[in-house]
């Protein structure tokens, strides 16, 4: 399968990555090569195989519904933020597009 630059551009938008023209070109080439490589899975005859997303078959139980005090102070949480006002995390104004 060959991926063209426009496909990379679209995928990059979904993934929120700004890429230069040179990067778009390079990734189109490299991803095409990787997809050619993965095409070998077709030879395994997997049509009747059930998908396997997780390997464990025994897992922990759900936890009891108990609240505990927040382990993070607000100051601690905000301390890592690139922009904050002491109360909120700040981002550029969201006016153009709304939550999907």
């Amino acid at each position: 399968m060959t991926i063209d630059k426009d496909t990379v551009r679209h995928v990059a938008l979904l993934a929120r990555l700004e890429l230069s023209e040179a990067e778009l070109e390079r990734y189109a080439r490299e991803l095409s090569a990787v997809l050619d490589y993965v095409a070998q899975l077709d030879a395994l005859g997997l049509e009747h195989e059930e998908p396997l997303a997780q390997v464990n078959d025994e897992f922990a139980k759900a936890r009891e519904d108990r609240a505990r005090p927040a382990p993070l102070s607000r100051a601690e949480a905000l301390s890592q933020a690139p922009a904050q006002d002491g109360t909120y995390f700040l981002v550029p104004p969201v006016v153009e597009y709304l939550e999907p």
């Binding site: 922990a60 759900a62 519904d65 505990r68 993070l72």
Partner: peptide, 30 residues
Amino acid sequence: PCANRFGAEPNTLICPVCLGLPGSLPVMNA
């Protein structure tokens, strides 16, 4: 296990999990 409460001071009912800090994992509430 952060409290599910309306009307608290902003950003006070938070932990690594609900703040999406790197490495945190969800644990289901029964």
